[in-house]
Amino acid sequence: MNRVINDPDQVVEDMLKGLLRAHPELEATIGNPRVIKHRDAPQAGKVGIVTGGGSGHEPAFLGYVGANLVDAVAVGEIFSSPTAKSFFDAIKAADGGAGVACLYGNYAGDNMNVKMALKMAERAGIRVMTVVANDDVASAPKGDEARRRGVAGEILMWKTAAACAAQGGTLEQVIDVAQRTIAQTRSIGIGLSSCTIPAVGKANFHIEDGSMEVGIGHHGEPGISVSAITPAATMARTMVEAIVGDLPFGRGDRVAVLISGLGATPLMEQYILYGSVAELLADAGIEVVVPLVGNFFTSLEMMGVTLSVLKLDDELESAMRYPCVAIGLTVSKEPL
């Protein structure tokens, strides 16, 4: 295990220390170092946007705290849900009096901790509504969407919901936008290698050299098939077919496409994949109006990629184009 770390049990603490030094616009909340908020949060009268999740997915989740994006995040151990207390403290940190939208991914631990945080928020008189992302088509069959995991599609949900909140949307409107975004987003991943949690010291799972796992989860959850590795163009076809058929997407749709590396796949390869994806979508009459390619939501040093596609309507498209600034995602006012 060749890693740039100090104490393997303290990687999250050490990461936060460096992050806060590098980003004066971010701060830890007083009393809870596992909650990172934007310097300007909470904003009076604005719906607060909160998320949270395990560490090891950087820039998710904390890299999406920013202007016109997420107000506060709860930070967990590697691949492990933040505590209920941290979710609650993030909710408090984001509450500007207009309520808080807690937008997170569908995992057992996160569900339990958010549930307990909601009880604490209720006692504290803070109005919170939630949306649970379930965009990963490979994690449960169609018809069983409630069991699907949330993956990189969460970023699109934060983006649109935060844009709505920034423009004065009510809590109900923000939640509606988040709900619609995730309902119209489908994702799938392909894993090419495993990853190692530093404190564990050995690989989390195993993928044979020369093999790929289609449908792999963000923590190495097994996918739907293991096969010999294919050219990127074939990977793109596999991924696009799984996604397009599921929603379904159709001719004339306008979409946002997000390709994320899982940590150890070079950007070069992500663009190779995007080229094929864009071509396949164009052939199907689906127009990509918001393309995003990069390491948006990773899994430590796993090799592999995820593809997320969001079917836009006018409101969601303008929300995707709304300016924002954060470590993980910046959208400028005018195309430069």
């Binding site: 967990g76 151990e77 933040p82 505590t83 901790n113």
Partner: peptide, 14 residues
């Protein structure tokens, strides 16, 4: 456990 470990085990054992 509730404040310190998170995951699934924090709320369950808590």
């Amino acid at each position: 456990l509730l404040d310190g470990i998170g995951g699934s085990m924090g709320p369950l054992y808590g």
